[in-house]
Design a binder for these strands. Structure first.
Lengths: 132, 132
DNA sequence: CTTTCTGCAAATCTTTTGCAGCTCT
DNA sequence: AGAGCTGCAAAAGATTTGCAGAAAG
């Protein structure tokens, strides 16, 4: 049976509170807040454990390493800012995409990632005359 | 200026002929067909070079390593078979997805991956009574 | 002939594993 | 008290970089 340790609790809370996918280094940083001496190996071990328990899920964004987020109750997607690389959750979905696949293919799921500028980066860009 | 070497040509041709995304090891294998003594470092170096030249593009599928494919002339997406893990191109697009992002976000691009069963795996599944 | 590219291997970076001691149940 | 969990560091896998020689221009 899984034990409830300070480390595991810290990691799990961190991911659940985050509201957006976190990378292993980010998890380590955040977890140190609650458990100063925590090591990277423990983070990876708990990620794997939490993953198998279905409490968190992996999110792979092109060009970046894997990130993890709490398993959400409803289907959602992601938005990655091209300016600051941060990833945000998008609680909207284009709907049924089965029609996009060629005949003969059976679509059972999909994953969508939007790219662009987050509000912060748009504001920063306006100051440099990059906005329209 | 970029030189036209046997290795670079082999790698580029391989990716262009492939018709689907290839992983670095697959590229090495295929390139050895034309240039027996080619090394992995050369493959990675050329991938990077081709990437910067805009001749190929990276395709990151969750749970798998990065793959590369020739830059296509028109926007397209991918379909990954959950049965055989193969990746296919999907020449269709749900259209403008800008409306999905929350207010304040500016969508500049998107990437979509469909998951399901390819024709081959569907046929295989029917033989076992899994279809319906 | 000069410069860039190549292949090999060490270096980096990321993720996993081994071991001894501590913590949870 | 017993077993799992933790931290440190080496190991393992993937990608990058250095160097001397070869090929391209």
């Amino acid at each position: 049976m899984e034990r409830s340790t300070r480390q595991r609790t810290a990691i799990r809370n961190l991911i659940e509170q985050a509201g957006r996918p976190l990378s292993p280094p980010e998890i380590l940083e955040g977890a140190r807040d609650a458990v100063p001496g925590i090591g990277l190996a423990t983070v990876y071990r708990n990620i794997k454990s939490l993953l198998e328990a279905g409490l968190i899920q992996a999110v792979t964004l092109p060009g970046d390493g894997v990130r993890y987020e709490a398993t959400t109750h409803h289907h959602h997607h992601h938005f990655q800012c091209l300016g600051c690389q941060r990833v945000f959750d998008v609680h909207a979905c284009p709907g049924d995409l089965g029609r996009l696949a060629p005949p003969g293919f059976e679509v059972q799921g999909h994953e969508l990632t939007l790219y662009g500028q987050c509000p912060d980066c748009r504001a920063a860009a306006q100051g440099r005359g990059a906005a329209g």
